[in-house]
Computed example of a mutant assay.
Amino acid sequence: MANKKVRSFESEIEINAPVSTVWEIVGEVENAPKWAPTTKKVRALGGRTKNGTWSLNLNKQGRVFWPTTSKVVDYVPGRRISNMATSGSEWVFELSEGAGGAGTTTLKQYRDAPAPVVSLFENVLSKATGGEDKFSKGLDKGVDSSLKRIKALAEQRSV
């Protein structure tokens, strides 16, 4: 029986920049440390990001560091990138033209994870980072912070 997936978060933001500009930021996995607060380093294996690209990642929250690997499992230039961590967590960005028309972008970010991974985060990593409440708030804050950083980067490039 396959693991049940749990949507652990979902958020979106409107950006005053064209989809192509936002894609330049989120469509390349090695850019993640520029906008993801818990991502400290990403090394893509095999050059520029495309479907099937593997990466080695170093993450940090508080005083806790942990390495991960991930693989790009869905890559539609200008529209969608999905990274599957070896834990089974899938991190997704979806882009579409924003409500403001051609010069704007709606960026949606979400993570789906197998129920056992959600349990691991709740029971192990959360304790190492100060408790489930603190860990969950850190993840939520990180998602909002990521989207705001991407927005700032994209809007700065569009000026």
Rank of each mutant, 00 (worst) to 15 (best):
M1F: 07
K5D: 05
R7Q: 12
S20T: 11
E24D: 15
I25E: 10
V26R: 04
N31E: 09
N31I: 09
P33H: 13
W35N: 07
T38Q: 02
T38W: 00
T39P: 03
K40E: 04
K40Q: 05
K41D: 10
G47D: 01
G47A: 02
N51T: 05
N51H: 03
W54E: 07
L56N: 13
L56F: 12
N57C: 04
L58T: 10
K60Q: 15
Q61K: 05
Q61S: 11
G62L: 09
V64F: 13
V64D: 15
V72Q: 04
Y75C: 05
Y75G: 08
V76I: 14
G78F: 03
R79F: 12
R80T: 12
R80N: 09
R80D: 10
A85H: 15
G88M: 00
V92L: 11
S96H: 15
G98Y: 09
G98E: 07
T104C: 02
T105F: 01
T106I: 09
Y110R: 10
R111F: 08
P114R: 00
V117F: 01
V117D: 06
V118K: 00
V118M: 02
V118N: 01
L120M: 08
V124H: 15
A128E: 13
E132H: 05
E132C: 10
E132N: 14
D133S: 12
K137F: 08
L139C: 12
K141Y: 04
V143Q: 04
V143A: 07
K148R: 07
R149T: 14
K151E: 09
A152M: 02
A152E: 12
L153G: 15
